[in-house]
């Protein structure tokens, strides 16, 4: 990467981090409160009556899922709202008129989303330590899958923002697609509890693979083969990156 491109990329990333840290009561506090409530209600109160899941206490089982859920929703929301706001306020033109290549623009925004996803994930992890002990079994797998998942959902948020024509449009996908996929993606339960039909159906849900790969990294147990999770995530990242680049260079939704 030559110097000017690197500076452009670092500038976008710095601006993105500055944006979500400036509005921290909207970006960093809500997931902390929501996840703390999940830990208290599902982990401590209800969880203590559920007993073991996958060979671990329910609290231990649910913590990796909840961390992953916060990473997914925050990395997606960050890029979707930031890039759409830039479109809405036309400040995206600052970048479009500059010599910054399209892929650098996309990479800058995506890494901004990854940064928020990982910071929120880290905060949620620290809160989880008040409720349970966490010993990471496979550090490499844990770090790799959480990073790649954040990249994937940041890319998805970026594409959502390119297509969005109103602020409603950036909440439709999280509400009607992301939330159901996450809740049904093995965050709160092992798919072993489901009938074979619903187990098969669950295996079509990409979030299941990411949550289980992360759980495997932390606890050492998973409902699926972790290799498939990495292959799936990399394929989706490749597809979304290609789609994003096509939309940027085609420019129909950003340029007239």
């Amino acid at each position: 990467m030559n110097t000017t491109i690197w500076i452009s990329f670092a500038t976008i990333l710095r601006r993105e981090v500055r944006r979500f840290t400036r509005i921290w009561p909207q970006t960093l506090v809500p997931p902390v409160i929501t996840m703390s409530l999940y830990f208290v209600i599902f982990g401590s109160l209800i969880g203590s009556r559920i007993g073991e899941m996958g060979g671990y206490s329910y609290m231990e089982f649910v913590v990796p899922g909840l961390i992953m859920m916060s990473v997914i929703t925050n990395s997606y929301a960050n890029v979707a709202s930031s890039f759409y706001s830039a479109k809405f306020q036309r400040s995206v033109e600052e970048l479009l008129v500059s010599p910054t290549p399209n892929w650098v623009i996309m990479a800058g925004y995506v890494l901004g989303g990854v940064a928020r996803g990982l910071i929120v994930g880290l905060i949620v992890t620290l809160i989880a330590l008040f409720f349970t002990d966490l010993t990471v079994q496979h550090v490499g797998i844990t770090v790799a899958i959480v990073f790649l998942t954040a990249v994937l959902f940041s890319l998805a948020g970026f594409i959502n923002a390119i297509f969005a024509n109103s602020f409603d449009d950036i909440s439709i996908i999280p509400t009607f697609v992301l939330t159901p996929l996450t809740y049904l993606g093995g965050v709160f339960y092992s798919i072993d509890l489901l009938s074979p039909f619903f187990q098969g159906l669950s295996k079509l849900n990409p979030v299941l693979y990411m949550v289980n790969a992360f759980r495997y990294g932390v606890l050492g147990v998973s409902d699926i083969n972790v290799i498939w999770a990495f292959i799936g995530v990399l394929v989706f990242i490749g597809f979304l990156f290609g789609w994003g680049m096509h939309l940027m260079s085609n420019g129909k939704r950003l340029r007239h």
Partner: peptide, 13 residues
């Protein structure tokens, strides 16, 4: 920030 950031988009240190 608006002005300085634009410099960054043009690759300025």
């Amino acid at each position: 920030d608006i002005v300085c950031t634009q410099g960054g988009f043009y690759g300025m240190p």
